[in-house]
């Protein structure tokens, strides 16, 4: 038990260690500018990771988020005439629709989540590419729209603000609403939850809608940041988000994990990438590191969960 308790601090300890390593390797690391930079460029990952945390807590997975990003990235570039709020409305609607599609497919037809969202991943990406015929949408972005990702509030870059806001909201939903408890319950035991009168299917669909909407917002954010609608954006975002969630200590089997953990996971990820950038490590190496982090984190977590279920298995 003590061991397990100790292990739950592992992500935080890793983060602190990485911060120390980072500050030793580069004197630019622990500067306000760099840290803000680090936070600001994590905004898309943060949005997706919060949704992914909720999805994984129900015992599911959403592989389609990266493609949803691409979809809304191009749509928001092409709907600039609607104004910022109009675009926002369209993007949220798209996110909700694709999320609902995922949710309905895997609850109504009981398809395994990873399979259902793998298929929709292919579909959404194809739609995004089809929509622009493969190329980016350039030169449409208005200054007001551009300001969403490039503006600042009291000297803090707006994306950094979004990171904090989305995690606070996620924490709030998970820990301060009955719905949050039901998310954990569904992941902890579907049949039991049903027995307890929880509408399991509804909880799942809502969770995928949340994930879809947050991914959709991430797509909007990217277009605002880079000033064009790129149908190839969001590639492998689902992996980053999964890695962030796993690194943060959430179990892939559902029912165990925290939003705070995912926040730490996000920072760990961002710090590693940031250190690699500061050390001028080739961007071609970064995907390899990303994959390694996923597998190492999955291994670490499976060890943790195993120690807990070992007693149950023996009986």
């Amino acid at each position: 038990m003590n061991m397990a308790k100790w292990r739950s601090y592992l992500p935080l300890a890793t983060l602190i260690l990485l911060m120390i390593v980072g500050s030793l390797l580069s004197d630019k690391f622990l500067t306000y500018a760099n840290l803000m930079n680090l936070l600001q460029y994590s905004a898309e990952s943060a949005l997706i990771a919060v949704g992914m945390t909720l999805v994984i807590l129900t015992g599911g997975i959403d592989l389609s988020v990266g493609s949803v990003v691409a979809l809304t990235a191009v749509v928001s570039a092409n709907t600039q005439h609607l104004g910022v709020w109009g675009i926002l409305a369209v993007v949220i609607l798209i996110g909700a629709l694709v999320g609902a599609l995922n949710g309905v497919v895997l609850t109504k037809f009981r398809v395994e989540p990873f399979m259902a969202t793998l298929a929709t991943m292919a579909i959404f990406r194809a739609v995004a590419l089809w929509y622009t015929n493969g190329g980016p949408i350039i030169g449409t972005v208005t200054p007001a729209f551009s300001n969403i990702a490039n503006g600042s509030l009291l000297g803090i870059p707006l994306p950094a603000v979004y990171v904090v806001v989305v995690f606070i909201l996620g924490y709030f939903v998970l820990n301060r609403t009955p719905f949050g408890r039901h998310v954990l319950a569904v992941g902890g035991g579907e049949e039991t939850s049903r027995l307890f009168g929880i509408k399991v299917e509804r909880v799942k669909v809502i969770v995928y809608i949340i994930s879809g909407v947050l991914a959709a917002l991430a797509g909007l954010l990217i277009t605002s940041r880079i000033g064009m609608g790129e149908p190839r954006s969001g590639f492998q975002f689902e992996l980053v988000a999964i890695a962030v969630v796993i690194v943060g200590g959430t179990s892939l089997t559902g029912g165990r994990g925290t939003i705070g953990g995912s926040f730490i996971g996000l920072l760990i990820f961002a710090v590693v990438m940031n250190i690699m950038n500061l050390l001028n490590i080739s961007s071609f190496v970064q995907p390899i590191v990303r994959g390694l982090i996923i597998i190492l984190a999955a291994l670490a977590i499976s060890r943790m969960v195993k120690s807990k279920s070992a007693a149950a298995e023996a009986s």
């Binding site: 408890r181 954990l184 939850s193 929880i198």
Partner: peptide, 16 residues
């Protein structure tokens, strides 16, 4: 019938 990772109180009032 229980959700092992949740507290006693949460289990008693789960869904309500």
């Amino acid at each position: 019938q229980e959700i092992p990772a949740l507290s006693v109180a949460e289990n008693i009032y789960l869904g309500r």
